[in-house]
Structure formats: structure tokens, C-alpha cells
């Protein structure tokens, strides 16, 4: 079994719920540096990271390609998650960007669904970049699913 947890705000929570061996990736980083918060176990993820996948697929995939991989139209967001800070990521989504003539990122400032899920999308992309999460639609870790519903 592979377990990878990257915790910003909810490290203790995730580890406690799981009661499993945990590879904590962000221990030395401050919250301001990185708010990514994901758990990956055998290709399944926590509910918030799964929500990040869903938001990505609905709002970002049409240009950035499947699974964060980039396309002929827009760059890989997995690479962006490796190179940029959460702050830069959030700013780009909110403000949009004209990268060069003919290449434009729209502003999502008016899209409440996207704006309220920024941390979840970031967590999903970080899980793809650093957390060993593969392609496709991840399942939700069973214990955490029950926790959500209770």
C-alpha cells in the first residue's frame, strides 16, 4: 500500500483519521508557502482532493487538457504546481493573464464555484505533481468517505 499525505491545514486531522503510516511532505513548510492538503492511498484520495479533480475537470480541462497534463492550447498545470506558489496560482485564476498575443487565460473572479475551490484544485494538482496520484478519476478513500457522510 502506498500512502502519501501532504498536509497544510489539516495534517493532524488526516493522520488521526487514518491511523496509518504517513509520509508527511510539508512538515517544514509554513502555511503561507503551501496550503496543499491531500492524502493519496493506492490511487484513492480524500474527499477535498477529489473535489479538486472534479472542479479541474469542469473548469480547467477544456483548455489545460486531461488530468492537468496540458495541451496544444494551454500549459500543463502539474508543472505549474511544481514551479509556482499557491499565491501565484490563485492570482492567475482570479485575474486571468495575457501570456503572449494569442494566448490568454480568462479571469475566474466571478465564478464562485471555482473561487471557493481554489485550495481543492491546488491540492489535486499538487497530488498529481508530488503525491504520486496518477491519471484519471480518483476514487475516495473509503474511511474518509464514511467520515464525510457521518
Amino acid at each position: 500500500m502506498t500512502v502519501i499525505v501532504k498536509a497544510g491545514w489539516a495534517c493532524a486531522f488526516a493522520a488521526g483519521v487514518l491511523g496509518l503510516a504517513v509520509l508527511a511532505g510539508g512538515a517544514a513548510e509554513s502555511l503561507a508557502d503551501d496550503v496543499a492538503d491531500y492524502t493519496v492511498i493506492d490511487g484513492n484520495v480524500d474527499p477535498n482532493t477529489r473535489e479538486g479533480y472534479t472542479v479541474y475537470s469542469r473548469a480547467c480541462m477544456a483548455c489545460h487538457g486531461p488530468d492537468g497534463l496540458g495541451s496544444s492550447f494551454a500549459p500543463s498545470l502539474i508543472q505549474a504546481a511544481e514551479r509556482r506558489s499557491f499565491e501565484e496560482f490563485a492570482q492567475t485564476i482570479a485575474e486571468g493573464r495575457e501570456i503572449q498575443p494569442g494566448q490568454v487565460m480568462p479571469s475566474f473572479a466571478d465564478d464562485l464555484y471555482v473561487m471557493s475551490n481554489l485550495v481543492n484544485v491546488w491540492s489535486y494538482l499538487k497530488a498529481r505533481a508530488d503525491g504520486g496520484l496518477g491519471r484519471g478519476r480518483p476514487g475516495i478513500i473509503e474511511d474518509m468517505q464514511e467520515d464525510e457522510e457521518s
Binding site: 483548455c63 487538457g65 486531461p66 496540458g70 495541451s71 496544444s72 494551454a74
Partner: peptide
């Protein structure tokens, strides 16, 4: 180009 750039699953 958007769909196939990264290959399919």
C-alpha cells in the same frame, strides 16, 4: 490537440 496532446488513458 487539446485532447490528445498528453495521450489517452
Amino acid at each position: 490537440g487539446i485532447g490528445l496532446a498528453a495521450g489517452l488513458e
